[in-house]
């Protein structure tokens, strides 16, 4: 399948400035974004559970260029979202898709493989991966180290693609039950608040979460770092850090595709995706809407109905 993918990229390359995919990074365990300009570059392409990055994050800054992008199912929803928001032009992107079996969560691997700093080689197949370090060989099943989002994946195949190779896979689940959220919210309000305070206390304000987010398109003009408007101060306290996460989540309301990049990028392993998932389910329930599926749709918070059937207003 990888070969077929390479073939189709090579075929399209002459029309394009370049194509984005994944190649091997600084060690065999870490993939890294790969920019393919020439047919030779395409040979370095990899496909598998290590392709963790959502490359759609790079697209908005490439507006105007003609580029190709290889996407997993989840990545493709970010592309749709960018198309919907007019941040990229459909004519300027060529989308290559393939069925995804799930990707790994590096934090889980680090826990399972204590010596993961010295990786010699990694073998991957459909069900798992074998990691050889300078000391040991670890056989891990994919289920063990799979990213949480993949365990509830509804769209393993790109929802939009110009070239789709391989056989479409059945989704892991039909509906996301939001069990993580349910269990979190089974705690009392004070516990939840204390949880976030301790988590936010650890935040180092690196903004990796925002930078990895394909929909945080404001970047240099993010309100986190602006004085006008001045939403958060630079104080190293819980309040401003928490406020920023709320801002990020609310700015994503109705847009976030729950790709999980924010949480994956966080060096402090702060579970910031949970906030966005909460909004995801609220919006799904209220407006019967899932982001990143229809580039033509009018997103729910930029629309309204005269009578909102699902909003039950308080009766005074």
């Amino acid at each position: 399948m990888l070969d077929k993918l390479k073939e189709s990229i090579k075929a399209a390359l002459p029309e394009l400035d370049f194509v984005m995919g994944w190649g091997m990074g600084y060690d065999p365990l870490h993939a890294t974004p790969l920019y393919m300009y020439e047919p030779e570059d395409v040979d370095n392409l990899v496909w598998g559970p290590l392709n963790v990055h959502n490359l759609a994050v790079h697209l908005p800054s490439l507006k105007g260029k003609k580029v190709g992008i290889v996407v997993k199912g989840c990545d493709s929803r970010s592309v749709v979202e960018l198309l919907q928001e007019g941040l990229i032009n459909r004519e300027d992107v060529v989308i290559f898709g393939a069925p995804c079996n799930g990707i790994v969560d590096m934090s889980k691997i680090r826990k399972a493989v204590p010596d993961a700093h010295f990786v010699h080689s990694v073998e991957t197949d459909d069900n798992g991966l074998t990691i050889t370090t300078d000391k040991d060989t670890h056989k891990l099943s994919l289920a063990e180290v799979m990213a949480d989002k993949c365990t509830r994946c509804r769209f393993p195949n790109a929802v939009v693609a110009d070239h789709f190779v391989g056989e479409k896979r059945e989704p892991t689940v039909e509906n996301d039950a939001y069990e993580d959220l349910e269990s979190f919210e089974s705690q009392g309000f004070e516990e939840r608040r204390d949880f976030w305070m301790t988590e936010m206390d650890r935040c180092i304000r690196c903004y990796a979460c925002r930078n990895a987010c394909p929909l945080c398109v404001c970047r240099d003009h993010c309100v986190a770092q602006s004085r006008n408007p001045h939403w958060v101060s630079q104080r190293d306290g819980v309040r401003d850090k928490f406020m920023f996460q709320i801002i990020h989540a609310m700015h994503m309301a109705g847009r976030c595709t729950e790709c999980g990049e924010c949480e994956r990028a966080c060096p402090m392993d702060i579970p910031v995706l949970l906030l966005k998932r909460k909004l995801g389910t609220v919006i799904h329930d209220l407006f019967d809407y899932d982001s990143g599926l229809d580039a033509e749709a009018r997103p729910p918070l930029l629309a309204f109905k005269l009578e909102e059937e699902s909003i039950k207003e308080k009766d005074w």
Binding site: S226, P229, H230, W231, H251
Partner: peptide, 19 residues
Amino acid sequence: STCPQGAIQLRHFTDNQIL
């Protein structure tokens, strides 16, 4: 209140004023 990065501000009711 629609613009995420606050690029469009209503004079005299700016984000900073309400904040």
